[in-house]
Simulated scan of single mutants.
Amino acid sequence: MYLFRGSEVAEALADCEVRVFRTSLFLLIAFAGMYSSETRAGGKNVETWRELWTRCRLAVEQSESLNVQGLHDLGQSTRRIPPLIVKGYAYPLIPGYEIFLHKWQQPGSSFVVVVEEYPGSRLSCAVQLASAASAITPNEEALFASAFLQERQTLVAAGTHEEKELDPIFSTNLGMGPIGRNENGCSVVSGLQIETGAGLDSFFSSFSAERSGCLMK
């Protein structure tokens, strides 16, 4: 029978500890990589989206200017909405109007923040995909929907918000809003709308908006 000397035992134990450490380190790096890929959602960082959308939500809910700290100003523009004309009517059923837009982007982000002002000074703020960003995938859609639902659950549990139904026009249609009106006397709705259906145009938008029917101050 072979007897191990003390030095041989010590060397064997040391070698074993090194192997265990290397294996643990490998598993830790692999886990971190998987978590990072899930959080980033293919380059569309979920936490970046959450932070930008929260800025939008708070600006509209609290009737405040958008917090643009760290954002790059992409400039302003105007979009003209033509009047709704129905044959047989002498005047437009709905008159045309203009929407004033102001866009911002966090450097290196896949998202742009779009603030829109409608007639009557109603505001909306949306986080959308930048033009250079790739189309959202079904796996990414699931990650963003899960993050939105987590935020909604937290706010509803706090007693400040309630779930709101959005028209089921996309593959994801999630909504919520504060229970009361904001300082402008407007009811506010926030939502996440995504489309990843085969054969349909890809779409991604998370928004907060003042609804029509605001009370006069």
Rank of each mutant, 00 (worst) to 15 (best):
L3T: 14
R5F: 11
R5W: 09
A14K: 11
A14T: 12
E17Q: 15
V18M: 14
V18H: 15
R19V: 10
R19A: 12
T23L: 14
T23R: 15
I29N: 08
A30C: 09
M34K: 11
M34P: 00
Y35P: 00
Y35K: 15
A41V: 02
G42D: 09
G43I: 09
N45L: 06
V46Q: 10
V46C: 07
E47P: 00
T48P: 07
T48R: 14
T48M: 12
R50G: 05
E51G: 07
R55I: 07
L58G: 05
V60G: 07
S63D: 14
N67L: 11
G70R: 11
G70Q: 11
T78G: 00
T78S: 10
R79C: 00
P83H: 04
Y91I: 05
P92N: 08
P92A: 07
Y97S: 04
I99P: 00
I99N: 03
F100A: 00
L101Q: 03
H102N: 02
W104P: 03
P107C: 01
S109L: 03
V112N: 04
E116F: 02
G120I: 01
A126C: 07
Q128K: 14
L129P: 03
S131F: 10
A132G: 03
A132W: 12
S134I: 04
S134R: 14
N139A: 14
E140S: 06
L149A: 10
R152F: 06
R152Q: 14
V156P: 01
A158L: 09
T160A: 11
H161N: 11
K164L: 11
K164F: 09
E165R: 11
E165T: 12
P168C: 09
N182L: 02
C186N: 07
C186A: 06
S190F: 07
S190W: 02
I194D: 03
G199H: 04
L200N: 10
S202I: 02
S205H: 02
S208W: 04
G213P: 04
G213V: 10
C214M: 03
K217Q: 12
